Computed example of a mutant assay.
Amino acid sequence: MQNLFIIIIISVLAESIWETLKMVWQDGKLCVDKVGALVISIIITISTDLDIFELLKINNKIPYLGIILTGILVSRGSNFVHDLIVKLTNNITKKN
């Protein structure tokens, strides 16, 4: 059952990360604001060693991948991160 839970969490994270990255290129041009937010967020998560996989106790074999993906998620801002936490928490509650 724990493996199914991890698959659900990774699915939510993958979709969220993809939706964030799609915002970088809009209407045929690069969105400088989104790129700036991505760069700043990734720098912050690297410097603070913030890794969502580590926080969720999910094994990751690629160094810095979790930190970079966390930076991408953080770049969306506090409302998005709050909504993501609610989704993940609901999945944890359903598991128990």
Results as ranks from 00 to 15, higher is better:
residue 95 K to I: 02
residue 64 Y to P: 02
residue 3 N to E: 09
residue 71 G to I: 07
residue 59 N to M: 09
residue 18 W to E: 14
residue 36 G to V: 02
residue 89 T to H: 14
residue 20 T to G: 05
residue 65 L to V: 14
residue 4 L to T: 07
residue 44 I to D: 11
residue 60 N to H: 01
residue 84 L to G: 08
residue 29 K to Y: 06
residue 50 L to M: 13
residue 47 S to K: 14
residue 46 I to Y: 05
residue 67 I to R: 07
residue 48 T to D: 10
residue 38 L to T: 05
residue 91 N to D: 02
residue 21 L to K: 10
residue 42 I to R: 12
residue 62 I to P: 01
residue 73 L to P: 13
residue 90 N to T: 01
residue 8 I to H: 15
residue 56 L to F: 04
residue 76 R to M: 05
residue 68 I to N: 03
residue 13 L to E: 01
residue 86 V to N: 05
residue 25 W to F: 15
residue 8 I to M: 12
residue 59 N to I: 06
residue 41 S to G: 11
residue 73 L to H: 15
residue 5 F to C: 00
residue 54 E to Q: 13
residue 66 G to I: 15
residue 24 V to W: 00
residue 74 V to E: 04
residue 56 L to S: 00
residue 74 V to A: 14
residue 83 D to H: 13
residue 5 F to A: 07
residue 17 I to N: 09
residue 84 L to W: 06
residue 52 I to D: 10
residue 40 I to P: 01
residue 15 E to V: 07
residue 49 D to Q: 15
residue 94 K to Y: 04
residue 93 T to N: 03
residue 67 I to D: 01
residue 34 K to F: 00
residue 74 V to Q: 08
residue 48 T to S: 12
residue 33 D to V: 04
residue 86 V to M: 09
residue 53 F to E: 02
residue 51 D to Q: 02
residue 82 H to F: 11
residue 2 Q to A: 06
residue 11 S to Q: 12
residue 36 G to S: 12
residue 83 D to K: 15
residue 20 T to I: 00
residue 83 D to M: 04
residue 59 N to C: 01
residue 86 V to D: 07
residue 82 H to I: 12
residue 42 I to S: 09
residue 28 G to T: 04
residue 44 I to N: 10
residue 65 L to P: 05
residue 61 K to I: 15
residue 77 G to T: 03
residue 7 I to V: 03
residue 95 K to T: 00
residue 2 Q to V: 02
residue 11 S to A: 05
residue 34 K to R: 14
residue 57 K to A: 10
residue 14 A to S: 14
residue 69 L to Y: 07
residue 75 S to Y: 01
residue 35 V to C: 02
residue 88 L to G: 05
residue 53 F to W: 14
residue 35 V to P: 01
residue 42 I to F: 04
residue 79 N to L: 13
residue 91 N to E: 11
residue 19 E to R: 09
residue 60 N to Y: 02
residue 11 S to G: 11
residue 93 T to I: 11
residue 20 T to F: 01
residue 78 S to V: 13
residue 33 D to H: 12
residue 63 P to S: 08
residue 62 I to C: 02
residue 44 I to M: 13
residue 93 T to A: 14
residue 65 L to Q: 10
residue 74 V to I: 08
residue 73 L to E: 12
residue 86 V to E: 14
residue 52 I to M: 09
residue 54 E to P: 03
residue 64 Y to A: 05
residue 4 L to G: 05
residue 29 K to I: 03
residue 74 V to H: 07
residue 60 N to I: 15
residue 45 T to F: 01
residue 78 S to Y: 12
residue 62 I to N: 08
residue 8 I to N: 09
residue 40 I to M: 04
residue 80 F to A: 10
residue 84 L to C: 07
residue 32 V to T: 13
residue 72 I to P: 01
residue 54 E to W: 01
residue 4 L to C: 08
residue 18 W to I: 10
residue 8 I to V: 13
residue 69 L to N: 06
residue 70 T to R: 02
residue 25 W to D: 03
residue 52 I to E: 03
residue 9 I to H: 07
residue 82 H to M: 07
residue 78 S to F: 11
residue 93 T to Y: 06
residue 21 L to S: 10
residue 12 V to N: 05
residue 96 N to G: 02
residue 2 Q to F: 15
residue 30 L to P: 00
residue 61 K to Y: 06
residue 79 N to H: 09
residue 91 N to Q: 09
residue 82 H to R: 09
residue 77 G to Y: 05
residue 22 K to V: 13
residue 67 I to E: 03
residue 14 A to I: 09
residue 35 V to T: 06
residue 56 L to M: 13
residue 16 S to V: 02
residue 79 N to C: 06
residue 88 L to T: 03
residue 22 K to W: 01
residue 40 I to C: 08
residue 83 D to L: 08
